[in-house]
């Protein structure tokens, strides 16, 4: 009984405490850098597209809202021919970012993407691609991959030996 009364009293006192509500459109929320908001495609330090069209983000997506098609340029560099995210389905779980082996796809602290027309929530590559490295600066997948995609030749990578001379039998 006493505890009930005490509860009522303590609740009553909350009338005079500071309110936690942020009055959003007038007052902006401070978001942390790892906030999972709008999805972007980033570029590598050399300005090339980071996405290599590996389809892992699409496979990881629990709502299947990512569709893309990989293609290759004349140097054998893979990139997406189209890259589409249907944000009207996206649940901002961040699995695509987790799955991305090249840091290309990233979720950024921006959630203000409301639209009156649902069709406008379908983002194509031109809408997604930003001219920045995003959260992970300095990484260029093609510098560490084994293939020659016009970024570095065979054996020119940091962790690579010069190509084998197949005509030699020396150990």
């Amino acid at each position: 009984m006493i505890s009930h009364v005490r509860t009522i009293w303590l609740t009553f006192l909350h009338l005079f405490t500071k309110k936690v509500t942020i009055e959003y459109p007038e007052e902006k929320v401070k978001l942390h850098p790892r906030w999972r908001g709008r999805i972007v495609l980033t570029k590598d330090p050399d300005g090339g597209e980071r996405c290599v069209g590996c389809y892992l983000c699409a496979a990881a997506c629990p709502v299947d809202c990512i569709a893309l098609q990989a293609t290759e340029d004349e140097n054998g560099r893979r990139y997406p021919e189209f890259f589409r995210i249907n944000f009207s389905r996206c649940i901002f779980c961040g699995f695509c970012e987790e799955a991305c082996p090249t840091y290309a796809i990233q979720l950024i602290p921006d959630f203000e993407m409301g639209e009156y027309n649902r069709q406008n929530l379908v983002f194509e590559k031109e809408d997604l691609l930003i001219n920045s490295e995003g959260k992970y600066p300095g990484y260029n997948f093609y510098k560490v991959a084994g293939i020659n995609a016009g970024v570095k030749g065979k054996g020119e990578g940091e962790q690579e030996e010069a190509p084998v001379d197949i005509h030699s039998l020396l150990p």
């Binding site: 609740t11 909350h14 009338l15 405490t17 500071k18 309110k19 936690v20 509500t21 009055e23």
Partner: peptide, 10 residues
């Protein structure tokens, strides 16, 4: 809302 530290409909 006030008792729950919110503002409520405003």
């Amino acid at each position: 809302a006030l008792w729950q530290d919110r503002l409520g409909p405003n």
